[in-house]
């Protein structure tokens, strides 16, 4: 790449990833998934399409779910990033993970880390979403194996159990 005056091609970033402080000098073209996978060894985030459609790279930045492949590492100075590895350690996905396992809401597992973030996001409001709302909310995450029903079931189960066994809204 030719250099353009005043625009560095590497930048320094300081951020927290899974609660740990990380400092790095990154190529400005490197997206967050590659930064996590190649620079930090966090291979739980998956690159499925690298153009923002499949959702396999979905993770959390500053408390919001984002596409890792549509976020540049260079943008993350001061950011707080959580990946499936980190949220597994904190236990905040534990009930969803258990429900995914017991309902077999994953087959090959490649989409699953991203799917879990989408699932956690739809449950974040604390309400019990309808099946249609769950389907709508996870529809940015491709799963080619399950046909989605088991995923919807698992999320619905967790929603109800978090709400204390309440019924889903119509």
């Amino acid at each position: 790449m030719s250099d353009i005056a005043g625009f560095p091609t590497k930048v320094d970033i300081s951020l927290t990833v899974n609660g740990e402080r990380v400092e790095a000098r990154v190529d400005v073209a490197r997206h967050l998934v590659d930064f996590l996978r190649l620079d930090l060894g966090l291979s739980g985030s998956h690159a499925g399409c690298e153009h923002g459609v499949c959702g396999a790279c979905t993770l959390q930045v500053n408390g919001e779910v984002v596409r890792g492949c549509l976020t540049l590492a260079a943008q993350l100075d001061g950011a707080e990033v959580w990946t499936v590895e980190g949220l597994t350690d904190t236990g905040s996905l534990a009930d969803l993970q258990a429900a995914f396992v017991s309902r077999n809401a994953l087959q090959c597992g490649f989409c699953t880390p991203g799917m879990l973030f989408a699932a956690a996001d739809v449950l974040a409001s604390g309400k019990v979403p309808s099946r249609a709302e769950i389907r709508e909310h996870i529809s940015g995450n491709y799963c080619r194996c399950t046909g989605y029903e088991a995923v919807v079931d698992a999320i619905e189960t967790v929603a109800r159990s978090r709400a204390g066994g309440g019924e889903a809204s119509a």
Binding site: M1, D3, I4, G6, F7, V28, A29, R30, A74, D77
Partner: peptide, 20 residues
């Protein structure tokens, strides 16, 4: 499919962005 970008700067404020 790895991005090619020729540089990156974070703008501090609007006038900085416009001058960049």
């Amino acid at each position: 499919m790895k991005a090619a970008a020729a540089g990156y700067v974070r703008a501090n404020d609007l006038s900085h962005a416009i001058s960049l």
